[in-house]
Design a protein around this nucleic acid. Structure first.
Lengths: 258, 258
DNA sequence: ACAAAAGTGTTCCCCCTACACCCATGC
DNA sequence: GCATGGGTGTAGGGGGAACACTTTTGT
């Protein structure tokens, strides 16, 4: 069993045997909790800023497989909704100096022309996970892994703020063509919860009654007998996506001018 | 002045000094002519199939710059609407054997572990050009460069058919959010021509009168005094995009359920 | 004169918008 | 009982869909 430092050394100095040079992925992992859109961020050692969970692409896996691997490492989940949305390729987007500095302060020797100090382009993915199911977990190259409110991400490393912005914009445009609600919510949810999700993503408030009518009009939701007990006030119904109808409807697009 | 063979040799055996390994681009260049969507294809030597014009990324340029460079090489045009839409990363998408075979039949020596024989992922771009302005031109690695009707592309090399499909699908979804009409048509055009373009992209027929009303309703077209003479029947008006209004409208999206 | 294509106008109806009202629950 | 939130209903209007009529041009 290798210890952590050895593992890191192996990765830095022999990673190029297993990973493709120049290519990385960064994932914007969205969750929804307490009426807030959340993003999963990790904290790299020796930098007080946070970062998107990212990774590299093994020589025998596709981009999608790589993104899936990273996602499952960070959330413990498999078969998650995951979609690439943009390639970020600004020439100086990666910061070689900073990276070397961090490695050296860890006591890792880095050979000249190390593969990690070269230019990297990054394929941005966004993922939608059920907040309650995900178990954020750190890995060897990061200290901490946590959910952040979308408004409180602060300044991230490199171009990661820009990547989140682009992911959000993509999600907004795809709201009517992708199973966004299905993947971000738990199996059972109330109509107000679904509405809050839409309002958060679109950043605008919607009429309660029209939202409900429209949603039900799609015929993609099954109302359950249960209601959400416990909360104050009238107990709302619980709904569940009718997966079959949902898939069918998404093919056409949920004609919705929000 | 290097001859062609020497140029090719340089590229194959020393290209890795200037280009990034593992990464290529492929461009789906759309044009519109005679009421048909066209795609620009090139024919590689020693293969009877056609291919998308593609290229590699120089170490000091972004993906977008690389795509622009290729585009300008193939069409003679600059500042063209160009947009990346997907990364294709299937592991065996590139065909090393076939590639080596072609080079050898050209009499080019290829060293072991040549950079071009490694796995490549490709970033797909789609471009919209004014058919009449573009001058298809071959380059050192291809014999011919020609426009094809979208229906007649036949079987292309590698995954290029799939790439075209994806580009079309993307264009369809972005029809109301990108200046698609503006870039595919000449400066002056008639309403029926614009309609044909929409019908071709969407692969459905639209009502002449409703289309006109809707388009004019956006306020993005200026009607000119001129009419298209010469054709049989009543001479249609010519229109021109009002670029200022167009940009403004696109920001909101041309709310159009076609 | 006639056919074919283009310009313009009208009607209908659906769906989105905007509201008002009633019901349940906790304090 | 009252405040708050959730479920349901309704009137009105804008715009898309479907259609008719007129105008122009070449044969």
């Amino acid at each position: 069993m290798m210890d952590q430092k050895q593992e890191m050394y192996e990765f830095v100095n022999r990673g190029n045997e297993h990973y493709m040079a120049h290519i990385s992925i960064d994932s914007v992992i969205f969750g929804f909790h307490a009426n807030q859109l959340k993003v999963l961020l990790v904290k790299i050692r020796h930098d007080d800023r946070w970062a998107l969970p990212g990774g590299f692409v093994r020589k025998e896996e596709t981009m999608e497989e790589a993104a899936n691997r990273v996602l499952s490492e960070r959330t413990g989940l498999n078969n998650i909704f995951l979609q690439q949305f943009h390639v970020f390729s600004e020439i100086h987007r990666s910061n070689t100096e900073k990276f070397l500095e961090i490695l050296r302060s860890e006591g890792i020797k880095v050979e000249k022309n190390n593969w990690l100090t070269q230019r990297f382009i990054s394929v941005g993915f966004y993922a939608l996970v059920n907040y309650e199911d995900a178990i954020p977990s750190r890995s060897w190259d990061s200290e901490v892994c946590e959910w952040f409110d979308l408004q409180n991400v602060g300044e991230l490393i490199l171009d990661h703020n820009k990547i989140i912005e682009a992911a959000l914009e993509t999600m907004r445009r795809q709201l009517n063509f992708q199973p966004i609600g299905y993947n971000l919510l738990p199996e059972k949810f109330t109509m107000p919860e679904l509405q809050k999700l839409y309002e958060t993503i679109l950043d605008k408030s919607l009429d309660r009654r029209n939202f409900q009518r429209k949603m039900l009009g799609y015929g993609i939701l099954d109302r359950l007998e249960e209601r959400r007990k416990g909360g104050a006030h009238k107990a709302p119904y619980l709904y569940r996506f009718n997966l079959e109808e949902y898939q069918k409807a998404l093919k056409e697009g949920l004609q919705g001018g929000w």
